[in-house]
């Protein structure tokens, strides 16, 4: 009854799960597409109010962390335990940095009275309300996934430290890594849709 030896099967299961996550965000992207069609001008205006520097910084942070997660798998396979631990800790740090940036960004928006049900959004043009509504829902849900991803990476880090994740059995790390790449991938779509909309 122990199937942990069938790495291919475990991977199939993980990919199916990732697929369902993409559909989850897909529903939100459908909303985005329809509303962008309805309120193109307001969306462009909304995009100008977001901080592109922080957005670009966060994109770079996630890309780097994706690389370090992939590198940690290679390190585990080469039995470089120290390296793997360092790389995973660094990836978790990147995730934390991403969240700090997000916090600063949201804080600034709140300061400008741009948050769900705020006076500015309720009285402003409807397209602006929808743009920021979607912005908070999508980036909020994404941030939640970043937190889940960081927990999985931390769990893998524990596994590497106590030897449960090693050069023969690294399914936990590999699947956590896959999840982290998904988090990264979704951001790659979110970033242009909100920050670079022209």
């Amino acid at each position: 009854m122990d199937n942990s030896s069938d790495a291919t099967g475990v991977r199939i299961g993980m990919w199916l799960f990732l697929y369902s996550e993409i559909i989850l965000f897909g529903g939100l992207f459908v909303l985005y597409a329809v509303y962008f069609h309805n309120y193109a001008a307001d969306f462009v205006e909304g995009g100008r109010q977001l901080d592109r520097v922080i957005g670009a910084l966060n994109t770079i942070i996630l890309l780097i962390s994706s690389f370090t997660v992939a590198a940690s798998i290679t390190a585990v396979r080469r039995q470089q335990k120290r390296w793997a631990q360092g790389l995973l800790a660094f990836s978790c740090g990147c995730g934390a940095l991403f969240l700090v940036n997000k916090y600063l960004e949201w804080g600034a928006k709140f300061h400008h009275d741009l948050y769900p049900n705020s006076a500015t959004l309720v009285d402003g043009p409807p397209g602006q309300n929808i743009f920021f509504g979607l912005y908070y829902v999508i980036t909020g849900l994404h941030a939640l996934h970043v937190i889940i991803g960081m927990s999985l990476l931390a769990w893998s880090l524990i596994g590497v430290s106590n030897g449960k994740v090693n050069q023969l059995h690294f399914g936990r790390l590999e699947n956590s890594g896959l999840y982290w790449h998904l988090v990264d991938l979704i951001w790659i779509f979110v970033f242009p849709l909100f920050y670079l909309v022209l």
Binding site: L31, V34, Y35, N38, Y39, P116, N117, L121, V122, P125, P126, G127, N129, I130, G133, L134, Y136, V137
Partner: peptide
């Protein structure tokens, strides 16, 4: 949060 994504008064459909 009363975002209004489906509320016609706030631009939703």
């Amino acid at each position: 949060f009363q975002i209004g994504l489906f509320d016609p008064d706030r631009g939703g459909d």
